[in-house]
Design a protein around this nucleic acid. Structure first.
Length: 581
RNA sequence: GCCCCCAUAGUUUAACGGAUAAAACAGUGGUUUCCUAAACCGUAGAUCGAGGUUCGAUUCCUCGUGGGGGCGCCA
């Protein structure tokens, strides 16, 4: 029998099976095995304590009975500790076997793949057209991209859809301003979106000063929504310019979408949403609008979900309903994940409740709907981020600053490099730092925007991980020894650092599982950082290029595995690697 | 008025109801004739308050304090 990929899961199963043959244990026993503090071993089972309590038994006695019944296994030592913990310490040989067995990206991927593979639609980034992306968009874009890579790594069929805000009421004012100022959309210069924003502000000004202008702006919107060809052409052009500007940023960030189906895509489908919801008595007219209440819900019994405004226009609730329907019908989605600000929590809760009733009434199977919420980026005043002049910091400015600052560091360290290489390294380092800064903390927490936080290059940051990679690659460049048999020639890990690094490598499956279970990339970040830390200590203490063949082989193997693990992990996070730093 | 989220070291964060709360930055002391010092090894420093549940609470419940957010025609 080969070495199992997920040893935590294996030990859990062994304990469960042993318990089923041990007096004093029933079916409902859960071993609760998890990775342990290094002081106690590699894994610990906590489950006996609550179980003994429930059944009014002595936890230590019960745990001892379970240990006595465990089949002998040379891979680990078992011990009873404290009030009733069962600790497992893997043998050096077990770790070696595990490392021999899992030797590549492919082996990690096939080990990690879910049994149930499914079609998942990931809805993220979703900026509004005619506006520049600002720092507020960074979280959805980066977290969404990372989750899409994680789910693909787990073997799911992922569709990435950028649900653009391209059909909102802002177009009335914008179209009005374009016409009144006689602006040609073909002559907006290098930053067309910045110009469109200026036009919008100008239009906003006009409508505030002048009642007639406000009416005209509303008419422009109605004309657009009724298919007026002139307005539709302008709108199409705006959408095109916006998408191009977004593409520039996505390219820098290494983000790609399968679809850019914005709200406008669903404009012809909203009527059928109304009809169906009316027909099935899910919605009702209230104060002139079409709304959905959920009487069984403590709050949404009173708080309406407005699907058609009293002026007859649709809103994002309507398009979101149509979008779910489309994704199920056309893509056969089994799960839809929305990556948005947590302030939209109520909206999604109402959307999901309404969808449940709607799909049930139509006898369709509703996919699993998940709102992956993240916290707001705040300014110094603890309110959503704004700069001094009232406009949010542009995302492109943040990214450029990250690259500029990293370039400075690279140049300082390697003054003789060519500019193109400096630029290449600075992009990997600076953009990696920005991404990692956002991914490495629990996504649900708000944070105050700070250049220092997002651009930090020391400590628990992407460059630290990239540096570990560069050092390993450097070792490989320097050795002239034959490496094809290192895994066979390696001795078991015995020094403290060899052992700790081996153990950390072995814990990779747990990190992936936890990250996927909660859809929280910071678990993976923490793991990769700890792995790189173990590597750095090992690197400092245990020289790799030594004469003893078996020691050299083990240490080379550890380097090689660490490199692969970091590569896989950083790939999932969307962070680039470097050969040298 | 109803509801939701957050509070951990000087600062920014971590901790799946488990054992002595873990890091980074900033302090402070050390390490380079040796595979990259963007590193390594020391050191100092924390769970908002009061109750409760539990063998065990940063974690769950109640109340309070402080901060943020959502709640009929914005997305």
């Amino acid at each position: 029998m080969g070495m199992p990929y997920d040893l935590c899961n294996t030990i859990n199963r062994v304990l469960f099976e042993t318990a089923s043959n041990t007096t004093g244990f029933e079916e409902d026993f859960e071993p609760q095995v998890r990775s342990a503090d290094e002081r106690f071993g590699d894994f610990q089972a906590n489950g006996v304590l609550p179980y003994a309590k429930r059944n009014q038994q002595n936890p230590r006695d019960l745990a001892q009975k379970l240990i006595d019944n465990l089949p002998d296994n040379p891979n680990w030592e078992v011990s009873l500790a404290g009030p009733g913990f069962i600790n497992f310490t893997l043998s050096a040989d077990c770790l070696l076997q595990w490392l021999r067995n899992y030797d590549s990206t492919e082996s990690l991927k096939s080990g990690s793949e879910s049994i149930e593979r499914k079609k998942v639609v990931l809805d993220f980034s979703s900026p509004n057209t005619a506006k520049q992306m600002h720092v507020g968009h960074i979280r959805s874009t980066i977290i969404g991209e990372s989750l899409s890579r994680l789910l693909a790594f787990k073997g799911h069929d992922v569709i990435k859809d950028n649900h653009l805000g391209d059909w909102g009421t802002q177009f009335g004012i914008l179209l009005y301003a374009i016409k009144r100022s006689k602006t040609s959309l073909d002559a907006l210069g290098d930053e067309p979106i910045a110009e469109l924003e200026k036009l919008y502000r100008q239009g906003n000004q006009w409508t505030k000063e002048d009642e007639g202008a406000l009416t005209d702006a509303r008419d422009e919107l109605v004309k657009l929504q009724n298919g007026d060809s002139e307005n539709l052409a302008l709108w199409e052009k705006i959408r095109e310019l916006s998408l191009k500007a977004f593409e520039d940023i996505y390219e820098i960030l290494g983000v790609q979408f399968d679809h850019n189906l914005g709200e406008s895509f669903y404009r012809d489908q909203v009527d059928s949403v109304y009809h169906s919801l009316i027909e099935h008595k899910i919605c009702k007219e209230d104060e002139g609008a079409l709304v959905v209440f959920h009487p069984e819900h403590k709050r949404f019994a009173k708080q309406p979900f407005i699907i058609r405004k009293s002026d007859g226009a649709s809103n994002y609730a309507t398009t979101d309903l149509a979008t779910i329907s489309y994704r199920v019908q056309e893509w056969n989605a089994k799960q839809i994940i929305y990556v948005t600000d947590s302030r939209q929590k109520d909206h999604f809760e109402q959307l999901f409740l309404t969808s449940q009733k709607w799909f049930k009434a139509e006898e369709r199977k509703l996919p699993k709907l998940s709102h992956v919420a993240f916290g707001t980026i705040l300014g110094e005043d603890n309110k959503a981020i704004k700069t001094r002049d009232g406009e949010p910091i542009k995302l492109i400015d943040l990214l450029n600053e990250a690259i500029r600052k990293s370039a400075e560091m690279v140049r300082e360290k390697s003054p003789d490099l060519e500019e193109s290489e400096i630029r290449r390294r600075a992009e990997a380092i600076g953009l990696g730092a920005v991404k990692y800064a956002d991914l490495s903390q629990d996504r649900t927490l708000d944070y105050v925007f700070s250049w220092d936080k997002l651009l930090a290059l020391q400590g628990n940051t992407a460059p630290y991980l990239q540096y570990a990679v560069a050092r390993i690659r450097s070792i490989f460049r320097k050795t002239d020894k034959e490496l094809s048999n290192i895994s066979e020639e390696a001795r078991p890990p015995t020094t403290e650092n060899e052992r700790k690094l081996s153990r950390k490598l072995m814990l990779f499956p747990l990190a992936i599982n936890q990250t996927e279970k909660e859809l929280k990339p910071h678990f993976l970040c923490t793991y990769l950082y700890e792995l790189a830390t173990e590597f750095s200590s090992f690197y400092n203490c245990d020289k790799v290029m030594v004469d003893e063949k078996d020691t050299f082989a083990l240490r080379m193997m550890l380097c090689e595995r660490t490199l692969t693990w970091l590569s896989v992990g950083l790939e999932i996070l969307g962070i680039d690697l470097l050969e040298e730093m």
